[in-house]
Computed example of a mutant assay.
Amino acid sequence: MRKCVAFIACVLLQSTGAFAGDFLTSTDGWTGFSVGAGIGAKTIDQNATAAAERWDLFKKKTCFWYYYCDTDYYGTKPEYLKGSMNDDAWKIFGTVQVGYDRLLFDRVLIGAFADYDFHPEGDEHASFSYKGNSLSGDLDRAGTWTVGGRLGYLVTPRFLVYGLGGFSRMNQDGSVTAAFDGPKYAPLPTSVTLTTGDLDGWTTGGGIETKLDRIDKRLSLKVEYRYSRFEGDSDVGYDDAFNKTTYKKWWTKTQVKHWASEGAGFDLDEATVQSVRAVLVWKLQADPAPIEPLK
């Protein structure tokens, strides 16, 4: 990661130095539509917790041959499951984008963009088991798209410094499953699966962009840092099971009714995402403005 950042910085410095003599030359090559593709690294810091609890209630009714019945209610000690997951390691992603920029007053640039980040390594998984009971969870992150704008300033005709901001949505599916086998002497399995969906948020950041092509100035390289925050999500669920068993002997008849109930909850905290990216940008059209010196 450090070698990658150092290489990008070296390219930018060489590019800036090579074009330093153009400070009072053309500002064309910035206005127009563009497409881009690049690579980066990001860390997603998000706590996911799940908890489940099971209750068992029994009603035992015994009737004797002389028509006397005895009824008894009793329950088992509640069983608990709890687990969490959080993987905030830096992971590689790919990105594609489209945008439009317009140069104002020779040095000020405004623009709009839309991009999508692919998360090939953005998934998380955790599992927990105890005495035959289990709790497992998955976060499957497909990617993040962002729409927003940027405002920049030309330090030289070929070197831009800018800030950006916009709306983001993280495409992900979160699920957790809690499963209880029940008491060994009266098993009655229950299971609850909970799900969460896409998360909305906002993005802010900044970057630098430099022209790489001296001829028509359509190709450029930009390096960005972004900070994003996404809302959390949660889900709750319940599962009930019932069983009735009858035992007969010549002098008694015993009937046992068994109720089992499970409740579970799944909570995703707010997610904070930090990313750095390098993107090659290609202008789809030349700047129609005449060549003029910077003022």
Rank of each mutant, 00 (worst) to 15 (best):
M1F: 09
M1R: 08
R2Q: 14
R2A: 14
F7M: 14
A9T: 11
A18D: 11
G21D: 14
G21F: 11
D22T: 12
L24R: 15
D28M: 12
G29R: 00
W30F: 05
G32F: 00
G32T: 01
F33Q: 04
A37W: 07
I39S: 04
T43E: 00
Q46L: 02
N47Q: 14
T49P: 05
A51C: 08
E53A: 14
R54P: 04
W55R: 14
F58E: 00
K61H: 11
T62C: 10
T62H: 05
Y67K: 13
C69Q: 09
T71F: 08
T76L: 15
K77A: 15
K77C: 11
P78Q: 06
Y80L: 15
Y80H: 15
L81E: 08
L81C: 10
M85E: 09
N86F: 05
K91E: 00
D101P: 02
R102D: 13
L103R: 10
R107P: 05
R107H: 13
V108Q: 11
I110Y: 06
G111L: 03
D117K: 10
H119K: 05
P120Q: 00
D123C: 06
S127D: 13
S129N: 09
S134W: 03
S134N: 08
L135T: 10
G137Y: 04
D138H: 11
T144H: 00
W145I: 07
T146K: 03
V147Y: 02
R150T: 04
G152H: 08
L154M: 08
L154D: 05
R158Q: 09
F159E: 04
F159H: 09
L164K: 12
G165D: 03
G165I: 04
G165M: 03
G166L: 01
M170D: 07
N171I: 10
Q172G: 07
G174F: 03
S175L: 06
F180K: 00
G182D: 01
Y185H: 08
P187N: 01
V192M: 09
T193R: 08
L194I: 06
T195Q: 12
L199Q: 10
L199P: 04
G201K: 07
W202E: 12
T204K: 11
G206H: 03
G207M: 01
T210A: 05
K211Y: 03
K217Q: 14
L219R: 02
S220Q: 03
L221C: 01
V223W: 09
E224S: 07
Y227W: 14
Y227S: 12
R229D: 07
G232N: 08
D233L: 08
G237Q: 06
G237R: 06
T245A: 13
Y247F: 14
K248F: 10
W250G: 12
T254R: 11
K257G: 09
K257M: 10
A260L: 05
S261V: 10
E262T: 15
G263P: 00
F266E: 06
F266Q: 03
D269E: 12
A271H: 02
A271R: 00
T272K: 07
Q274V: 00
A278M: 05
V279G: 01
D287N: 02
P288C: 03
P288H: 04
A289N: 08
E292I: 13
E292W: 07
L294Q: 12
